[in-house]
Each structure stands twice: as C-alpha cells, then as structure tokens.
C-alpha cells in the first residue's frame, strides 16, 4: 500500500467510528483523538478495525505512535513492509 492509500484507509476506518468526522480537516501532525473527538474506547476500536482490515496487530505499547495521522501512516507503512 502507498502512503496515500494507508492514509485514506485510516480516515475511512475513523469515519466508521465517528460518522460525522470530516476527513478533509485532518492534517498529518494533528492528534487524531482531538480532531475527530475520539475517546479511549474509540481509539481502541480503531486499532481493532486496523487489525481486521490489514491484519496488523498493533501492540498496546505502540498506540502512542499512532496518535497523529502522519505517525499512524508511517507506522503502518513500516509494519506492512516487514
């Protein structure tokens, strides 16, 4: 997957959790939890959705690397290439 595809996938999965979210507002450096009003349950659901979709089980200790859109994109790119 390209970075663009990964980014689009993350935003798609967030829309499933936060239907009112507007993906256009997200910048790479923003904290997803703030921009999309995600609480800890929502974020856990996002991790589950990523696992379901692309079979990457993100360890809990790595959650903080996915708090931003840019960070999440980079993390999943690296994980997919391994």
């Amino acid at each position: 997957m390209t970075d663009t595809e990964i980014r689009a996938l993350i935003l798609e999965l967030i829309r499933d959790i936060a239907p009112e979210a507007d993906p256009a507002v997200a910048r790479d450096q923003d904290d997803l939890r703030e921009v999309f009003d995600l609480d800890s349950m929502d974020f856990a659901n996002l991790i589950v959705a990523i696992h379901d979709r692309i079979k990457i089980a993100i360890p809990e200790v790595d959650y903080n690397k996915l708090f931003t859109l840019g960070g999440a994109t980079a993390y999943l790119r690296d994980a997919l290439s391994q």
Partner: peptide
C-alpha cells in the same frame, strides 16, 4: 493490564475502565 493485553489480539484487550 499491560501484561494481559500484551498477549491478546486487539479485540480481546481491555481498557483500564
């Protein structure tokens, strides 16, 4: 919780709450 979740797939992890 850290130990419990470390061995679990995301769907089975629990939140501190």
């Amino acid at each position: 919780i850290e130990r419990f979740n470390a061995e679990k797939p995301p769907i089975e992890r629990i939140l501190p709450a």
